[in-house]
Write a protein that binds this DNA or RNA. Structure first.
Lengths: 153, 153
DNA sequence: AATTAATTTGCATAATTATGCATAAACATG
DNA sequence: CATGTTTATGCATAATTATGCAAATTAATT
């Protein structure tokens, strides 16, 4: 029953994205969300995943919602910037990078230091970074470069 | 069965202190801790209290532990968010939202949570939020959606 | 390649948390 | 002060989450 490590990373990665994007109220909902993204799993596994990822369930106006915690697995995160990144998206003019809460600044600084990958500048908030390209034509290449640099897919 | 408000405040107060001092793993343990401090209560009541106080349960090396959340009691309510927004403007590529001083972060978080209204990401400063659309074609629609969601014109 | 060790997963279920309902105390109103 | 309303609480239980265990697969070792 053991799964490949890559699959686990993949599931964790998707998990993080779902949690940071949607409002997830319970783990059965999460099973369905993952299914929609083509990942099969069970409530039991997700319970363990959430624990490993340091995900918390916070009370909101709508009810209890899962969130990525800033403090959660702080120790694990410090070492690799890659682990701090949740997702990278773009539109016609900009690149937007989602990170764990409070991590945007650190990642932004890291990106700024990378010279010659086509970045004009970055702005980091709490958990979001805007990357401004030297030219909108370079957006694709920049994303590729970041992924290569960080060794993520 | 109603209790005096003072008692409730008192219990909440003690609750917060216990949570920030000891390692609390579950609510029955919490019932006992409160009892030791002379406060009688039940698991059900504490479940409600924890929700009201915005307490989260974080996975740690020892297991799940209750913690006071950083965001504390400030639950994002629609009506409150609406009041914090001063203006919404756009240009060809971005949407800029002005808020009352120091409120941008909160509003930005709220907007991030709204799924499927076409927002790629947001960055909040002190009193300004930049909203990046999934596509510049969606800018108008996003503004409409925000206004509808918040019930403002 | 064969064998062994290590790890992940699902199932079943235990443990824990959340909540509808009824009730009673506090509060409001006249 | 009497009466009506609101709200917090406990009980019982539903809903949800965590976990022991066995099975199955991968990874390691020979």
């Amino acid at each position: 029953m053991k799964k490949k490590v890559e699959d686990i990373h993949k599931r964790h990665s998707v998990l993080k994205e779902i949690i940071s994007t949607d409002e997830i109220f319970n783990q059965t909902q999460l099973v369905k969300s993952l299914k929609q993204k083509g990942i099969k799993s069970t409530q039991a596994t997700l319970s363990r995943d959430l624990s490993e990822l340091g995900v918390v369930r916070v009370p909101t106006a709508n009810g209890l919602v899962y969130k990525l915690s800033a403090t959660g697995d702080e120790i694990t995160l410090k070492y690799r910037v890659a682990e701090e990144i949740i997702s990278i998206h773009k539109n016609e003019t900009l690149i937007v990078i989602k990170t764990y809460p409070g991590r945007a600044q650190g990642v932004a600084v890291f990106l700024d230091r990378q010279s010659d990958i086509g970045i004009l500048g970055t702005i980091g908030g709490d958990d979001t970074i805007i990357v401004i390209p030297q030219s909108i034509k370079k957006i694709k290449k920049i994303i590729e470069q970041i992924k290569i640099t960080l060794g993520i897919n």
